[in-house]
Amino acid sequence: MAGPLEQFQITPIVDGPVDGIAFTNSALWMTITVIVVTIFTVMGMSKREMVPGRWQSMSEAVYEFIGSMIRENVGDEGRKFFPLIFTLFVFILFGNLLGLLPGSFTFTSHIIVTLALAVFVFLFVTLVGIAKHGLHFFSFFVPHGAPTWLYPLMIPIEIISYLSRPLSLAIRLFANMMAGHTMLKVFASFVFGLGAVTAGVGGILPITMMVALTGFEILVAFLQAYVFTVLTCLYLNDALHLH
């Protein structure tokens, strides 16, 4: 029986042209995510109906969802970042959801992937802030209303809290995905373990739990994609409007 952490094993499928960039199971599911998202959004809209069918409704719902998220959290200035925020959301959402398919691989359960995404978001947002406000951007770290003698204390705290953003963003997504999948695997092993010694009867309870947990994991998949995206929007708002 495979251990609960074995599902996170990265295994190369095809060697890359250069060492270190082998096409792995992780890369395969990233590619599948890109294909599925493209099919979902592009093919869903192929009929361009005035009164949408189910599929078109879903693509439009995601579009409207991200649209209103940006409107509410960033404002009109956030409009030009729509494609990026949209891509971020669908990439994480479909990565999480496809990872729930039995036998698939969840690339968002790897800290390096979530960290790379979070650092990308962090750097992007910081660059947007500097591009808009120039050096004035760094006034973001100066707390409002605090007395001047507290600045030596407050400014380092603000800077540390700013720098910890990508870490919390990355760890939240990674930890949620990893914990959920580990738990599913543990319960799955209970189904076989208990079932084998009790002629199948003992497997009923853990399999019921697994059904419930799978539903819960689908919720988590949505929720974590939403949280990641909404926090990106909030950071973007900070960078654009500085407090």
């Binding site: 890359g16 890369a27 990233m30 998202v37 592009v42 390096i112 995404l117």
Partner: peptide, 20 residues
């Protein structure tokens, strides 16, 4: 495994971004 993961993340994310 970090190199391949970051590399393919960058590639797939960029492709998806352009497609979207």
């Amino acid at each position: 495994t970090y190199g391949t993961q970051v590399f393919w993340l960058a590639v797939t994310f960029a492709v998806l971004f352009i497609l979207m």
